[in-house]
């Protein structure tokens, strides 16, 4: 474990209990994240992106069957903490989140400033309300909102402003890690671009570490230093953004990139035939095998993880074979 890592995740599993059997929403995920970097987690709906954030934040629904693995935050294993300890010491102070469609998650009857200051007051009883409000105002300034809006109610703000307010709320306690779950997908194009500018500025000025969960690969490139591709509960590829956008290695990543329409260059678009497998009884071996062009007999067995250096890895038999020289 390198010293500059904020987060190290090892073999994380989160299975849900259903009437038909366990849903393996997150099934053995490994990755690590350096301080000040952004990891974009991309994948299609139902691949386990949001379950991953739930596992990291320990916001678990009642039907959890398996929750195992290790999550090291600055070298401390979060899995050793009790739920109460986690709530007191980690959630929002160390790991904060901007949930999906969070602009609609503000309480409509509480003033914005009180909502932003709330996490500070809850976690530190000794803090005076006035100080907390000052910090809230500072967070407001960071996300580029005028302090005139602090005293307003959520309905008085536009969608883009509310989204910035929820980001201010996540930043107010200066957490080590902020998880952004589809922060801009419900917003209009220009508002979305403005929001990405704000996040980029925060990242550069304060060196905040982000995990960006998104299905929009184009927008992900605005913020990502590293890209992780999820497919059917697994992280099939983790690459630096430089490498990923031009030389993705996993056949699924390649297909996914080929399906993204581009505005500035003409390319032949492709789609991926078939559907992702059910997570209740996923096929053994590689989960992408049934849709893959490069399928080989060995794909029926679990693909090994090929290490490509500097935290990059790919789960595919093709790379393993190339490495061994078969």
């Amino acid at each position: 474990m390198a010293a500059n890592h904020v987060l190290d995740v090892c073999n994380l599993k989160l299975h849900f209990r259903t009437a038909k059997g366990p849903v393996q929403a997150v099934d053995g995920i490994d990755f690590s994240l350096e301080r000040g970097k952004t990891l974009a987690v991309v994948g299609e709906s139902g691949c386990g992106k949001t379950s991953l954030t739930k596992a990291l934040l320990r916001l678990l629904p009642r039907n959890v069957q398996t929750f195992s693995g290790d999550i090291y935050l600055e070298g401390r294993n979060l899995m050793d903490l009790s739920d109460e300890q986690y709530r007191r010491e980690i959630r929002w102070l160390k790991i904060a989140t901007v949930p999906q469609a969070s602009m609609n998650s503000l309480n409509p009857v509480i003033r914005i400033e009180d909502q932003i200051a709330e996490p500070l007051l809850v976690h530190d009883r000794r803090l005076k309300r006035k100080q907390a409000l000052e910090q809230a105002a500072e967070a407001f300034r960071v996300v580029g909102l005028s302090s005139d809006f602090l005293q307003r109610y959520p309905f008085e703000l536009s969608g883009g402003m509310r989204q910035r307010a929820t980001i201010a709320m996540a930043l107010v306690a200066a957490p080590d890690l902020v998880i952004l779950d589809e922060p801009s997908s419900a917003l209009d194009l220009l508002t979305q671009a403005n929001l990405m500018n704000v996040l980029k500025r925060i990242k550069q000025e304060f060196g905040t570490t982000f995990i960006l969960i998104t299905h929009d690969i184009g927008t992900a490139s605005e913020l990502a230093d590293e890209v992780a591709v999820m497919y059917a509960g697994r992280m099939v590829e983790v690459r630096s953004a430089q490498q990923f956008y031009t030389h993705a290695s996993h056949p699924y990543s390649q297909k996914l990139m080929a399906s993204v329409p581009t505005l500035r260059e003409e390319k032949e678009l492709q789609f991926i035939p078939g559907q992702p497998p059910s997570l209740i009884r996923p096929p053994t071996g590689c989960r992408f095998a049934s849709r893959c062009e490069h399928r080989m007999p060995c794909c029926d067995q679990e693909p090994p993880t090929t290490d490509l250096g500097r935290g990059q890895h790919v789960q595919c038999w093709l790379l393993e074979r190339r490495a061994v020289g078969v």
Partner: peptide, 26 residues
């Protein structure tokens, strides 16, 4: 022009650049 500027193509180079888009609301 603003719509064009705001649309991101997947490109690692985007990370270093800020987008020149108008603020405000429709």
């Amino acid at each position: 022009k603003a719509l064009f500027e705001a649309t991101s193509d997947p490109d690692a180079g985007n990370l270093a650049q800020f987008k020149d888009v108008p603020a405000g609301e429709p």
